[in-house]
Amino acid sequence: MALDLRQLRYFVTVAEEGHVTRAAERLGMQQPPLSQQIKAMEEQLGLQLFRRKPRGVELTESGQVLFEEARVILARLEQAERAAKSAARGEQGRLRVGVSPTVPFHPFVPQVIRAFREAFPGVLVTLDECLSRQAVRGLGEMSLDVALLRAELPELAELTVHRLMEEHMVVALPAAHPMAREGRGEPRSLSDFAGESFIAYARVEGPSMFAATMAACLRAGFTPRVGQEAPRITSTLGLVAAGFGVALVPASMRRLQMDGVAYCDLVPAHRPSLPLLLATRRGSRSAVLRNFVDLVRRAAQCITRDGAEAATSGN
């Protein structure tokens, strides 16, 4: 019969103390039962583990070998217990985050990713660039745990969607365009671009920006002329730089400095916006995911509250 963990703890404590009575005090038990346990271990193994001395005990050669192995076993058990409790608190594990291509350019996103990694260094965070429909599939197929998206998602029973904040859009236009040179920095009406060719970004797999563009142009009184289509935001801006047309993009895309591209603000009446959304699979019990969602939502609420207070105060 193999020794159990309780016996190993008794044995290790006696070996460390070198005295049965002191070991019993440390274990919170009486000395006679502890002596009986050690004797039972020796009988079970058919080995003498301790040599009795006038003022204590000392390990035999066999006892020393068992002592070294037992300490490793107990240390590994303690480590396993700590790891299990840490995982239950969401402090260890893995988090797979899907991000729309324009999302990382918003300063909020790298800030919260960095804050989460600093708060939970034991969690492996991986980022996967994907468009909205790809992200929905990834969440459904469990290849993603959470997604930061731009799209207005339909009501899906399997998803929980948190609306974090809104971001206004600007016009990306060729740097050589007359409107980029004239009245530099002045907001313009979207109707000023009615004669331009608009580049359609990710029209099928991530239609949110295309839909926002169409809706904004219609509100401004014209139907946009759609020209080239681009699968990614970088290729969209590449087409803008090459003079193929203009595009409505999130304002944070200004952070992507590209030769040949200028950005123009729009007057508030014609300024569309895109949401920043956090989507998760409904019913997930992951503590890691819960910690991430809580951190992101708290951070977004702080930004939204601070922005509202600044607007109210006129700052």
Rank of each mutant, 00 (worst) to 15 (best):
E17G: 10
A212K: 05
F198P: 03
A287E: 07
A299H: 03
E91L: 13
V267I: 07
G90D: 06
L127Q: 08
V249K: 03
L237V: 12
V125C: 08
Q79D: 11
V288T: 00
P250M: 10
E141I: 06
S208D: 07
L66D: 09
D259M: 11
V249G: 00
R114K: 11
A147T: 00
L139R: 01
P178E: 07
F105I: 09
L77G: 04
A216R: 07
S100H: 05
R271L: 08
G206M: 02
T126W: 00
L149M: 03
S273Y: 04
F210M: 11
V112A: 05
V261W: 08
Q111R: 15
L95T: 00
E141H: 10
L239D: 11
D259H: 12
E167D: 07
S35Q: 15
A135P: 02
V171M: 08
S100I: 00
A194S: 12
R89M: 09
L289F: 03
G183V: 05
G122F: 09
M214D: 04
G245V: 02
E43L: 14
G195K: 12
F108E: 00
D265H: 04
L77T: 12
S273P: 03
K39L: 14
R133I: 06
A40I: 08
H19E: 15
L124A: 11
G206P: 03
R9S: 10
